[in-house]
C-alpha cells in the first residue's frame, strides 16, 4: 500500500513538474489568488507537499538513527551496569570455622569498592553462611561474624556503615546440598543483596 501510494506520489510529482514547465513560459502576471483552484495552484500545492514529504522522510531517518544510537549507548551502559551488579553481588568464601578474609575474598571485595563508592544511593545486605559441620546454633553466630568481617573490610575502606547491613543464616541455606568438602567450601560464604538503589544504572569509579 505504502509502495503504491509512493508510486502515485512520484507520478503526481512528475506530472506537476511537466505542467509547471509548460506554464513557465507564460508571463507571471495575475496568478489570480482568489480564484478557484486551477490546475496550476493544484500543481504548486502538490509540489510543496512532496517537498515536505521528502523532508519528513529525511527527518524520520535521522531520528531513527538517533534513537538507534541512543538505544545502542543505553544497551552498552546497561550491560556495563549488569556487569557491575554481578561484581557487587559476587559471593565471598571462607575457610572452615573462620571469619578471616583470605586473598580471594579480599579481591572480590576490592572489586565491589569502586561500585559502592560511585553509587552512593546503593545499600547492600551481607548475609553470612556456614557449612553444616558445626553446632547448628553456633553456626548462626559464625555466619554473623563472617558478615561482620566483610562489613568491617568495606567500612574501613570508606563505605558508610549505614549502607551495609549484616545478617546470618548459619547453616540453614546451603548453596550446595552435598555432604563433602567440595560442597562445604561453597557453603562457607557471604552473599550480597542490594537493598536500596536496586534500579540505579550502576557506575564504577575509574
Amino acid at each position: 500500500m505504502i509502495v503504491n501510494r509512493r508510486a502515485t506520489a512520484f507520478a503526481l510529482l512528475a506530472l506537476s513538474v511537466g505542467v509547471l514547465d509548460a506554464c513557465h513560459k507564460k508571463p507571471k502576471v495575475a496568478p489570480a489568488p482568489v480564484t478557484v483552484a486551477t490546475t496550476d495552484t493544484m500543481g504548486e500545492r502538490r509540489r510543496l507537499d512532496s517537498l515536505e514529504a521528502a523532508r519528513r522522510m529525511a527527518d524520520e531517518n535521522a531520528r531513527r538513527r538517533a534513537v538507534d544510537d541512543s538505544l545502542r549507548r543505553a544497551n552498552e551502559a546497561t550491560s556495563a551496569s549488569a556487569a557491575l551488579r554481578a561484581a557487587l553481588t559476587a559471593v565471598v568464601y571462607f575457610e572452615y570455622d573462620q571469619d578471616v578474609l583470605n586473598g580471594d575474598a579480599k579481591a572480590a571485595l576490592d572489586a565491589k569498592l569502586p561500585i559502592l563508592i560511585a553509587n552512593p544511593g546503593l545499600s547492600i545486605r551481607i548475609t553470612g553462611h556456614t557449612d553444616e559441620r558445626g553446632a547448628d546454633e553456633y553456626n548462626v553466630a559464625l555466619g554473623q561474624k563472617r558478615a561482620s568481617a566483610v562489613k568491617r573490610y568495606l567500612a574501613e575502606r570508606g563505605i558508610a556503615e549505614s549502607r551495609l547491613e549484616t545478617v546470618s543464616m548459619g547453616e540453614e541455606r546451603p548453596a550446595n546440598a552435598g555432604h563433602d568438602e567440595a560442597s562445604w567450601s561453597q557453603n562457607r560464604r557471604a552473599e550480597f543483596e542490594i537493598t536500596a538503589g536496586a534500579n540505579l544504572v550502576l557506575k564504577a569509579r575509574q
Binding site: V140, Q144, K145, S148, K151, R152, T166
Partner: peptide, 9 residues
C-alpha cells in the same frame, strides 16, 4: 541469650 553483632557474640 546470645546477641551476635559487629564484634562477636
Amino acid at each position: 541469650w546470645a546477641a551476635a553483632g559487629e564484634n562477636g557474640s
